[in-house]
């Protein structure tokens, strides 16, 4: 039996009134989990029931796996009381599990079983699973290459952008020289540099690193600068009367006050650097997920393309999540002042 939610206001030992509301509340709490299980059973059966229209080796395993997931969802829902936080997590995600199971079921039927969607442009789920199992080494190499390139370029761009932004915001002289350059070059999409960069840099790797750094650096610079420039003079006055030297004003007043802006710049830079990464890999670099996509398209290996796209989106959203958690840690003081 599942627990009552807290809003019901009933302690575990409270007297139960009648059967009907009990059943109703049980359905309300566990219904989504049961439905999730049903959806995944449907997906599993759709894999196993009909014969495939094409030649895919993982159909059977996928069907079994779907049934296993359905079983986990069922037992997780019924036994939520004994599973603690895992049960709670399952309960929270159950509606999504329903949607996902239904989507996969429709996808399976529409592609592998009746070919309503034209093959090979729309491969079935088992074809994508096949890529992950059979082409794993190449995919992992690509992931590694992409992460390496992105990380290097992003860190360089973010560091240079941050330092430039602070200098422009702080020093009038630096601002005089750097500001016009920034206005002239900054709005140019970093990808416009691609042809020149691949000529002038010694390797395609260094050219791409430069472009990713450029794409990251511009928003970081502008937002760091505006953050530093918008720090209230009152803070500087307070620090100065307490004996602060200029270095203290920069490091302990301007930078911490500007940090919320800096993070906006870091988020924007991350987004635009992803675009540059993929384009650079498609055009010049002979490794990475962008290159894998291009290669798969050349061989009309559409399942590989979808597989690579899924990995790519997981990596990008993982990077954003990581940046969010760094921000939450550094800007914990904002928690009461800003709506999250």
């Amino acid at each position: 039996m599942s627990t009552y939610s807290l809003s019901d206001g009933l302690a575990s030992g409270a007297p139960r009134l009648s059967r009907a509301p009990l059943l109703a509340s049980w359905i309300r709490v566990s219904g989504a989990g049961i439905l999730a299980s049903v959806a995944w059973i449907a997906f599993g059966l759709s894999c196993l029931w009909w014969a495939d229209v094409g030649d895919w080796s993982r159909t059977h395993s996928l069907g079994i796996a779907a049934l296993v997931i359905a079983a986990i969802a069922l037992f997780g829902t019924v036994g939520a009381d004994y599973l603690g936080s895992a049960g709670k997590a399952l309960h929270k995600r159950a509606p999504w599990l329903v949607a996902l199971g239904m989507f996969l079921c429709v996808w399976e039927v529409a592609t592998a079983k009746f070919a309503w969607l034209p093959l090979p442009f729309f491969p079935p789920p088992q074809a994508i699973i096949e890529v992950y199992t059979d082409d794993l080494p190449k995919l992992l190499d690509s992931v590694f290459a992409s992460v390496k390139l992105q990380l290097g370029g992003y860190l360089i761009g973010a560091t240079v952008g941050f330092l430039t932004g602070v200098s422009i915001g702080w020093s009038r002289a630096v601002g005089y020289w750097v500001h016009p350059v920034l206005r002239f070059i900054g709005p140019l999409p970093a990808t416009a540099w691609l042809p020149i960069a691949f000529f002038t840099f010694p390797s395609s790797w260094s050219a791409s690193t430069f472009l990713i750094a450029l794409a990251t650096g511009f928003p970081v610079t502008v937002l760091t600068w505006s953050g530093v420039a918008s720090v209230s003079n009152a803070y500087y006055d307070v620090a100065r009367t307490l004996g602060a030297k200029p270095s203290f004003l920069v490091l302990k007043v301007a930078i911490p006050a500007a940090l919320p802006h800096v993070f906006v710049g870091l988020f924007m830079g991350l987004g635009s650097s992803f675009a540059v990464l993929v384009v650079a890999e498609m055009i010049g670099v002979k490794a990475g997920l962008g290159w894998y996509l291009q290669w798969a398209q050349g061989w009309a290996a559409y399942a590989n393309m979808y597989a690579a796209l899924i990995v790519m989106s997981l990596l990008c959203s993982g990077a954003i999540t990581l940046l969010f958690s760094i921000r939450d840690r550094l800007l914990v003081w904002q928690k009461g002042t800003v709506k999250w």
């Binding site: 009152a234 006055d237 307070v238 307490l242 006050a257 800007l331 003081w333 002042t337």
Partner: peptide
């Protein structure tokens, strides 16, 4: 000052410590 102008990113203790730190 009329406004306390405490540094919002510093705890109370760290705000008070500002002068000695500077």
């Amino acid at each position: 000052f009329q406004d306390p102008t405490l540094f919002p990113w510093r705890s109370v203790w760290d705000n008070v410590a500002l002068g000695l730190e500077a």
